[in-house]
Design a protein around this nucleic acid. Structure first.
Lengths: 301, 301
DNA sequence: AGTGGCATTGCCTAAAACGCAAAGGAGAGG
DNA sequence: CCTCTCCTTTGCGTTTTAGGCAATGCCACT
């Protein structure tokens, strides 16, 4: 246990938003949890939750405490791991969160490289829209996040940030394959394939089209990057995405990435992130270094 | 309490090196503490202390846990502070550790500047030899450390590191005041004033003299920089120290800092440090930024 | 061998956590 | 408007855990 059960209960309640749900997950009576929360509130001298008819939600003070608690529990877990097996990198789990584009080629490649160095380390990868990725990292559900954003984020530790403009991805035989730079007008002449709403690409594209009074009606809309790519490699459809997403694809499936002459589309930032003020387990930390390194290489290529 | 008492007892035992002493400080029976320690060892599955006839000393695993515990407890304290008084910078204590040279002019000046911005923040300053400073920061007895070192340190978060060669400090009327650069031979022709053993200046000077087969017999040896300065401003004695130590002294007491042509003396590094992986209280964090800024300015001057 | 400084163990008491059941509140829906 | 449902909180008896005290064991030092 190391740390009082109080904090453990507290984070669970914060996570599920009600005593009842937490009681279910923790297999502990509701009353017990209720008392622990009361105790915490007494100790801090402020209410940590707002009591709503349908559950409990963190107050401002509660959020501060929740952050502390999550940091602490994660740290404890990592330290216990390091203690129980003395070799630094045998605390064997790296939990990654990323937006879809990285999940198919880039991250698997990095994981493979890492795996050759430390075969006993396991991975968990979760992909989602940028907002989810950010949230997972912030709450410690993932160790490392890789995604896109349009503005600078706070409440998160930024390991690396780099401009990652939205590109047009098209097959070598495409009519536009000869042009180095495309315009928005070029895009309107071909069917488009793009990620669902909630992703930065989609948002930026919609803004760009709206700014020029054009309607944006993609032929294909999916929540999987690979769907788009597959489609684009065999048709004249133009997929919208990032250069990194196709970096390292097998030659047979290769796509070309073309820049698009539209300022809005340049605004996208790639972000590599971890939880703020968190001490990472050894395995995560070394993986992070590798990832950062490979990311920089890929960005330059 | 927030966190189980176990960790609290644990760090205290680690700090004083025996159950008996910890029992005294905590006002808790020895047996109670002994049981908490046993419980921790059971939970981690490894002994955390080596039992010696004269007390207990941390094992390797124990050290890992102790670091975690200290991080956690400090973090908890800081979060509680932030909660109880919601304004970020009202958690009112900044604990500084530095080597003697900074304690007289430089740090007081920074504290004054800070105090004008946040009048309710209090300070604790402890000065000592570099080894102590480092230790205080490492164990969380101080929030921020400012000192010198000869090699790169680990187990500590380096906020800023900069070359800080040992200089000769002499009064404007001194026979050597005209020279821009002094040699070791110059130093032998005048009485010297220098800090006690354990400080980097002293160490480097002794090495330098030894390397040239000279004996090192300072006229004045003190553990207070100001003693040396006072002495040097009114005699032809040369004080050894850092440029920063005299930065901002009132004109009447002013000394000149001269570089010395001796590679060994250039090796000294100034280090601004905090505990590794620790989340600092808001007040400490803002003070640190100010300090860092002023330090950079002073270094350029 | 004896002594003093330590840590551990056994036993008992005090305090804290837990579970169950009942009570109190506040929307949702008929 | 009343009831139903889904919450949380409270009261009470039981169980678990921490604390204190005194006895024991260990080891070095004299």
């Amino acid at each position: 246990m190391l740390h009082g059960i109080a904090l453990k209960y507290f984070v669970e309640v914060a996570r599920c938003g009600s005593l009842a749900a937490a009681s279910e997950n923790l297999q502990v009576a509701v009353s017990a949890i209720s008392r622990q929360i009361s105790k915490l509130e007494q100790e801090t001298g402020t209410p940590l939750f707002e009591r709503l008819p349908r559950g409990m939600v963190l107050t401002e003070a509660g959020q501060l405490l929740a952050e502390h608690a999550r940091r602490t529990l994660l740290d404890a877990q990592s330290v216990l791991g390091e203690i129980s097996s003395r070799h630094a990198t045998s605390n064997g789990l790296v939990r990654l969160a990323c937006t879809d584009g990285f999940a198919h080629v880039f991250l698997p490649d990095v994981m493979m490289t890492y795996h050759r160095l430390y075969p006993q380390i396991r991975f968990v990868l979760q992909s989602g829209i940028p907002e989810q990725v950010r949230h997972w990292v912030e709450t410690g559900a993932a160790d490392i996040g890789l995604g896109f954003a349009m503005e600078n984020t706070h409440g998160i530790e930024l390991i690396l940030q780099s401009c990652a403009p939205v590109c047009a991805l098209l097959r070598p035989g495409h009519p536009l394959a000869g042009q180095a730079l495309l315009t928005l007008a070029d895009l309107t002449r071909f069917p488009l394939a793009i990620l669902e709403r909630g992703n930065t690409v989609r948002q930026l594209l919609e803004w760009s089209f709206a700014a020029q009074g054009k309607v944006f009606e993609p032929l294909l809309s999916s929540d999987h990057t690979s769907t788009l790519h597959r489609f684009a490699t065999h048709t004249d459809t133009i997929a919208l995405g990032s250069r990194l997403a196709i970096h390292g694809l097998p030659d047979g499936a290769s796509l070309l990435a073309k820049n698009i002459d539209e300022p809005l589309l340049q605004q996208r930032q790639l972000q590599l992130m971890t939880m703020k003020a968190r001490r990472l387990p050894a395995a995560v930390s070394t993986f992070l270094r590798l990832l950062e390194c490979q990311l920089q290489q890929a960005l330059q290529a």
